[in-house]
Simulated assay, not measured.
Amino acid sequence: MQPKSSSARSPQAELLADATALHAAVSDLVRIYQFRDRDKICCYDISVTQCYALEALAGRGPMRSQALAELLLLDKSTTTRVVDALERKGYVERRADAADARALSLQITRKGRTLYETINRELIAQQAEIVAGFDREACAMATEVIRRLARAAEARFVSGISVGDCAPGTGCSPRRRD
């Protein structure tokens, strides 16, 4: 039996190296997509966050403001500003909630759905260009990995796990993304 060479890394060191590489790759991807989305979506006179709200309402149907805030991981006041802007532009309307007439429900308008579908169609066309050179299995595997990373990141966010000054035990409440 030969002793381990000094170049062999421990499982912990390998995990940290993999995590470092993953962090760099995800950071690059998120940064690029944020700029791409901002540049593509904002040319339609809505913000990326407003587009996320339209997407939620288009995909899930009418919902109360609190449900939208939770879905988008926004605080109530930010959600109100997002919805107010969308309502002023005619993309969303507030209606009496079907389950409770005292409450208001948010609903995407025909104009809002048309806008969302236009933006979504353009973004999907860009994705088609990106994955055109991938074989279907590699594309499916990449999609699954990204979905799993998103679910894990959301679970950590929702549970309040953070870094830096908002780390557990510091007494700081994590900020929600705006």
Score class of each variant (00 low, 15 high):
Gln34Gly: 11
Ala67Thr: 15
Cys43Glu: 14
Gly171Glu: 10
Val83Ile: 14
Thr143Trp: 05
Ala19Asp: 02
Gly90Val: 12
Ser173Lys: 14
Val131Leu: 05
Glu144Arg: 15
Gln126Ser: 13
Thr114Ser: 04
Thr143His: 08
Gly171Asp: 13
Ile146Ser: 09
Leu15Pro: 00
Lys40Ile: 01
Arg36Ile: 01
Glu70His: 15
Glu117Met: 07
Ser105Val: 12
Phe134Arg: 03
Arg121Ile: 00
Val82Glu: 00
Ala140Met: 13
Ser159Ile: 03
Ile32Ala: 12
Arg88Tyr: 13
Phe157Ser: 03
Arg177Lys: 02
Glu122Lys: 00
Ala13Met: 11
Glu14Val: 07
Leu54Tyr: 08
Leu123Ile: 07
Gln107Glu: 12
Asp97Trp: 14
Tyr44His: 15
Arg151Gln: 14
Tyr44Ile: 07
Ala21Asn: 13
Phe35Ile: 02
Asp39Leu: 13
Val82Arg: 02
Leu54Gln: 06
Arg64His: 14
Asp97Lys: 08
Leu149Lys: 03
Ser159Asn: 08
Thr118Pro: 01
Thr143Tyr: 05
Thr80Met: 06
Glu137Arg: 11
Arg177Leu: 04
Val158Gly: 02
Pro3Asp: 08
Gln66Cys: 06
Asp135Ile: 03
Arg136Thr: 08
Ala21Gly: 10
Ile41Cys: 01
Ala155Lys: 05
Gln107Tyr: 04
Val83Trp: 07
Thr80Asp: 04
